[in-house]
């Protein structure tokens, strides 16, 4: 986007957030809502500051971010080759796609007891929850992205003497990269939504953990604080990924540009 348009986009987004916070202030300070249902901005700020002061905020953020990123990375490492193979081989797709579609519909929450049974209460169980939440969607997105590569480019490469492996490394992978970066950005977001499920049982730290724990005490200020931290981390991740995408695939033209 042109610089002037980027500026007005940024301004509008900023104003949008300000309006939401303004409404929040009016609704809470103005006494329109029960204190338990919605804490005021000051109360949320105080709980954030308290947690920051005793170091727990950093610990929770770090632990949760690590769980999401490791679980997601496992997804990505598995989804990439499997998704590519599914796109290129009807035989492989026939074998594996129905199974993936089946598991995709299973609610991850329902799988928690099984994961505890198989993996115990250590970190691996948390990573697997995140993995289960993202892999089955990501693999289908990768398959879709790879399938939509222009076949003429692959044909051109073959008539230039590329062998089967070269077609993958020199054409399919770079051609799919912009689409894959988008798939990654979207699924990292979904991975965060599984954080609470991952930290539901046998967790002693983490943003999901404190949100769940606060439920029992109706400490909605801590709930809000936790949610806001997740949202902020998410926005930062998204922003960084967009920048990374621009660096990795500078040649890509989006339809909107």
């Amino acid at each position: 986007m042109k610089k002037s348009r980027r500026l007005s986009y940024g301004c509008l987004s900023f104003i949008s957030f300000c309006v939401i916070i303004a409404v929040w202030c009016v609704v809470t300070y103005g006494g329109f809502v029960n204190k338990i249902f919605m804490p005021s901005p000051t109360e949320v700020w105080i709980s954030l500051v308290d947690m920051a002061k005793d170091g727990t905020l950093l610990e929770h953020c770090f632990v949760s971010t690590k769980r999401v990123m490791v679980g997601w990375l496992w997804s990505a490492i598995a989804a990439l080759p499997i998704g590519m193979l599914m796109a290129r081989s009807k035989f492989f797709s026939a074998i594996i796609q129905p199974v993936i579609e089946f598991v995709r519909y299973l609610p991850v929450v329902a799988l928690v007891p099984l994961t505890l049974l198989y993996l115990g209460i250590e970190e691996n169980q948390k990573y697997v929850i995140i993995f289960l939440g993202t892999f089955f969607q990501l693999v289908l997105m990768v398959c879709d992205t790879v399938s939509s590569i222009d076949k003429n480019m692959i044909n051109a490469a073959r008539t230039l003497g590329a062998n089967k492996l070269q077609v993958y490394t020199e054409v399919i992978f770079p051609a799919a990269l912009p689409g894959l970066m988008d798939d990654f950005r979207l699924t990292i977001g979904w991975a965060w939504t599984y954080l609470v499920v991952a930290e539901m049982v046998a967790a002693s730290a983490g943003l999901g953990y404190i949100i769940l724990k606060s439920q029992r005490f109706l400490a909605t200020d801590v709930i809000f604080a936790g949610l806001i931290m997740i949202g902020v981390i998410g926005l930062i991740t998204d922003f960084l990924l967009r920048i990374l995408t621009k660096l990795i695939v500078p040649w890509h033209e989006r339809l909107g540009d």
């Binding site: 222009d150 003429n152 480019m153 044909n155 051109a156 490469a157 073959r158 008539t159 230039l160 003497g161 054409v171 770079p174 051609a175 990269l177 695939v249 040649w251 890509h252 033209e253």
Partner: peptide
């Protein structure tokens, strides 16, 4: 099979954009 001995040029150019 396709091969480098028969080079092809298509209507859609098919250059590698990266």
């Amino acid at each position: 099979e396709p091969g480098a001995d028969r080079g092809m040029v298509f209507q859609g150019y098919s250059l590698f954009p990266w």
